[in-house]
């Protein structure tokens, strides 16, 4: 086991390097311009724009640019944003708490709802509960977040006036009132994102449960006279969790990159909006920093998932 862990961690180093090369190359080859906004501005003539491009090193050969980036990266320096001229790490630090709070809560809520609902749906397959849950899940999944977001705004902000539609990081109110304000403004983004995530996760949980509750060992457990509760939780769910763990492990790194559309609608200053605006502005240092951290998380959580498989199903061997 320890040996397996060490090996996996060692493998992940070249993996990350390979990933960074591929991403860097894609970014370098993809068309776009950090100064596109000034293209039609007579006050910023094309030659000025081209000179600035050059000063950002955008006209250097890709391998040269990569080596430059990688060597400062190894020294722990993520570089400066082309746009705001401030250290990338500061930008990420500013965004991280909000992201974890809003997007993280949404994921947590969706896991907490989806697993019980999915399990119950599977046990009572084709019951009214199951059918309602299925229909709701598919409404949640076929309505993209840009639709649910607007619907929620219309209902809770415009009609009822209960919740603010703009997320503010600058609330200064002290004490409980301030806390309540902070919770209130996060409710809608959490609901919108939570609905979408719950929808998908419920379906996976349900399917996985359906698969296991008809397995022989579950039947055996029942035959032994164990209570239904024990059978479901100890015997069926444990195996059913493998695909669920996979999906959850896949989406946890996603918390870090945030939820672009939801963040955009409610103006939540999370990592997602940072990433997307960096991509639109061709702010390579910011994109690289975020994606590298993200891929490190992907690698890490896949490793965790692989270890969890073994815990859930002892027959799985590490080779």
């Amino acid at each position: 086991m320890t040996q397996y862990l060490i090996r996996r961690i060692l493998i992940s180093i070249p993996t990350l390097i390979a990933i960074s090369i591929v991403i860097f190359t894609i970014l370098a080859l993809a068309p776009g311009d950090p100064l596109a906004e000034f293209a039609m501005n007579p006050a910023v003539p094309p030659e000025v724009r081209q000179r600035i491009r050059k000063s950002m090193g955008l006209d250097d050969p890709i391998p040269v640019r990569y080596v430059k980036w990688a060597s400062s990266m190894l020294r722990g320096d993520f570089g400066y944003s082309f746009r705001s001229k401030s250290p990338v790490i500061d930008l990420i630090r500013q965004r991280l708490p909000t992201t974890l709070y809003v997007i993280g809560t949404a994921y947590l809520v969706s896991v907490l709802i989806a697993i019980p609902v999915g399990v119950l749906s599977a046990i009572r397959q084709y019951s009214i509960f199951d059918n309602v849950a299925t229909t709701l899940a598919f409404i949640g999944f076929s309505l993209p977040t840009f639709v649910t977001g607007i619907l929620f705004i219309l209902l809770f902000s415009v009609k009822l006036g209960w919740l603010p539609m703009i997320y503010r990081t600058t609330i200064e109110t002290e004490g409980l009132a301030g806390l309540w304000e902070k919770i209130k403004q996060a409710l809608m983004p959490i609901m919108v994102l939570g609905l979408f995530e719950t929808a998908a996760l419920t379906r996976y949980t349900r399917a996985a449960m359906l698969e296991t509750i008809h397995q022989d060992y579950v039947r055996t457990a029942r035959a032994k006279g164990l209570s239904e509760r024990t059978v479901i939780i100890r015997h069926a769910m444990r195996n059913a969790l493998i695909p669920v763990v996979t999906i959850v492990a896949l989406s946890i790194p996603g918390i870090f990159t945030g939820a672009v559309i939801t963040e955009q609608i409610f103006r939540v200053p999370g990592m997602g909006s940072l990433l997307i605006s960096a991509i639109r502005d061709n702010d390579t240092p910011v994109i690289m920093a975020i994606t590298i951290i993200f891929s490190a998380l992907v690698v890490l959580f896949n490793l965790i998932a692989d270890i969890l498989y073994g815990v859930l199903d002892p027959r799985i061997k590490y080779e």
């Binding site: 068309p31 776009g32 311009d33 596109a36 293209a39 039609m40 081209q50 491009r53 639109r280 061709n282």
Partner: peptide, 15 residues
Amino acid sequence: ASVFFSSDPGNPDTA
């Protein structure tokens, strides 16, 4: 837009 208004000489889709 950021492609269309790019000053990148290698990008054929610019204005």
